[in-house]
């Protein structure tokens, strides 16, 4: 095997929130090589606008939607959930641990819980009818789709009829779990098959890692 010198800057430069891949691998469904590969991706994302090795909201939104300025409620919510420390940036450890939930091998309960927090807009521990309506309205508006108020009202009411089995006007985590079990498509987006092949995206990096592993 010839020289497999990586041209990656990741060998030399570690971002401010860098964490040991071995530890991250032990806490997530990723292998050490996959965490290393995610670090390559993290470096790209975290230096796309502000070159400080931390993912800012604009960089996250740029990667998700190809724009950094247009307001997107969902990008905001996902960013906030990834930003566990609530310091306005996604650090490497937060990035890996959060993405771990989206791994095909991650526990279903974790995916369901993450989705619940996504919809629990005001973080009250419940999905309330009003906030669900607000989310539907905001997202339809952001995506230039139109449904009449009556139609939205009726869909949200029907959703609550089905999901709010305790009939207290809000969906708690247990009701959410039961609802998801009846509608598994609701957490379809919580699994990224691509994460199983993450190392394939960075072949030069794999070569380097393999050499390191064999040393």
């Amino acid at each position: 095997m010839g020289c497999v010198c990586s041209t990656s800057s990741s060998e030399k430069v570690k971002t401010p929130g860098y964490e040991d891949p071995t530890i991250l691998a032990s806490e997530t469904p990723f292998t050490v090589s996959e965490v290393d590969a995610l670090y390559e991706l993290y470096l790209k994302l975290s230096n796309s606008i502000i070159e400080d090795g931390l993912i800012h909201k604009e960089e996250f939104q740029l990667a998700l939607f190809r724009n950094k300025n247009e307001k997107n409620l969902f990008a905001d919510r996902i960013f906030d959930l990834f930003d566990v420390k609530r310091n306005g940036v996604i650090e490497f450890g937060e990035f890996v641990r959060s993405l771990g939930v989206f791994h095909p091998n991650a526990a279903l309960e974790d995916k369901i819980a993450f989705a619940f927090r996504l919809y629990d807009l005001r973080q009250t521990g419940y999905i309330e009818k009003q906030e669900l309506k607000e989310m539907v309205l905001a997202l339809l508006h952001e995506s230039d789709l139109y449904l009449s108020d009556e139609m939205i009202e009726s869909i949200v009411d029907k959703t609550f009829e089905d999901a709010d089995t305790k009939e207290d006007g809000r969906i708690d985590e247990d009701e959410w779990k039961a609802f998801v079990s009846q509608h598994p498509s609701l957490i379809k987006n919580m699994t990224l098959p691509y994460l199983k092949d993450i190392t394939l995206a960075f072949p030069s990096f794999i070569a380097r890692t393999e050499v390191e592993d064999s040393e």
Binding site: L41, L73, F102, K133, I155, H183, L186, I198
Partner: peptide
């Protein structure tokens, strides 16, 4: 219709993290 509010949110939000990996 079986469409529920969460489906609408999911469709209209374009919630799909796979685009994080688009440019490699």
């Amino acid at each position: 219709s079986n469409l529920n509010a969460f489906d609408i949110i999911s469709f209209s939000s374009g919630f799909d993290l796979s685009s994080l990996f688009d440019e490699k």
